[in-house]
């Protein structure tokens, strides 16, 4: 199950989405999220669906890759939709059983919520799948550059993020391995009361932390050995420069958001 998490995994492909400036993609993801919470009605949903489908198509990332990311949050999806299904008050009662009732509004709400969550995960995973983590942090670093004036260590934060992203898959594999090794010694990570289960995590967490610290230590040394001394005086292999397609993408994004807002009124 752990392997299903697709956030932070890059899918190499040669597509227009991959080539966009990461700042555009960051802004795009942000506006897309806003649109998901702004839209109302079927027309809005339809516009978002078309937009999402277009992005998926353009990104050349197989759909199955994005859908895999959903598996990890199935429980959340079920819980949220059930919550909305039963707890939305409304006039058109479809079904009543004691104090539990299902209303027309509840069904609509549950469906919309389900779409929101699924679209949220799939949409944002396009951004991470089609942007190398380094480009993403570069984008973030450059977009947040003004904050350096108020002493926010933007470069350090961006570097930390990119390292974290690089090591997530490695640590996930490590968790898998340690779990198996402890299971071979009879450890049980699945059964028992909550307290017992938390206690049972110790043989997993201690080795994981020890390993993470060892890696951090090694990495710090390797970076130093390669003349890393922080952000000052660094150049970029891939400096961010807007191309024509980036401006076009900004225009499309603006039009898209305007469309979603306009459709609210319908």
């Amino acid at each position: 199950m752990i392997r299903d998490i697709t956030i932070g995994q890059y899918y190499p492909a040669d597509s227009v989405i991959h080539r966009l400036d990461p700042r555009v993609k960051l802004m795009g993801a942000l506006l897309y999220m806003v649109s998901l919470f702004l839209f109302q009605g079927l027309a809005g949903l339809l516009l978002i669906t078309v937009f999402l489908a277009a992005c998926i198509g353009l990104s050349k990332v197989p759909l199955s890759y994005m859908v895999r990311g959903l598996r990890a949050i199935v429980a959340l999806l079920v819980f949220t939709s059930v919550f909305h299904l039963f707890l939305t008050p409304g006039e058109h009662v479809l079904f009543r059983f004691g104090i539990v009732s299902i209303t027309m509004e509840g069904v609509a709400n549950a469906v919309f919520m389900l779409f929101r969550l699924i679209y949220l995960i799939v949409g944002t995973s396009i951004m991470t799948l089609a942007t190398t983590p380094n480009a993403l942090t570069d984008g973030l670093e450059k977009a947040l550059r003004p904050l350096e004036k108020i002493r926010v260590p933007v470069h350090a934060i961006a570097m930390m993020m990119s390292i974290a992203l690089r090591f997530i898959p490695i640590l996930i594999e490590e968790v898998d391995l340690i779990m198996k090794a402890q299971m071979a010694r009879g450890a049980d990570f699945e059964n028992g009361s909550l307290i017992k289960r938390v206690k049972n995590m110790i043989p997993l967490l201690v080795p994981l932390f020890v390993s993470a610290f060892r890696r951090a230590d090694d990495l710090a040394m390797a970076m130093e050995a390669r003349c890393y001394v922080g952000g000052a005086g660094r150049t970029k292999m891939k400096p961010l420069r807007y191309a024509k397609r980036d401006y076009v993408a900004y225009l499309i994004l603006a039009a898209y958001l305007a469309g979603v807002i306009a459709l609210r009124a319908v």
Partner: peptide, 18 residues
């Protein structure tokens, strides 16, 4: 533990960037 970049060429570029 010594590869910093998430893409091969970006990692190779890390030293010269510094």
């Amino acid at each position: 533990n010594q590869i910093i970049g998430s893409v091969v060429e970006e990692d190779v570029g890390f030293g010269p960037e510094n």
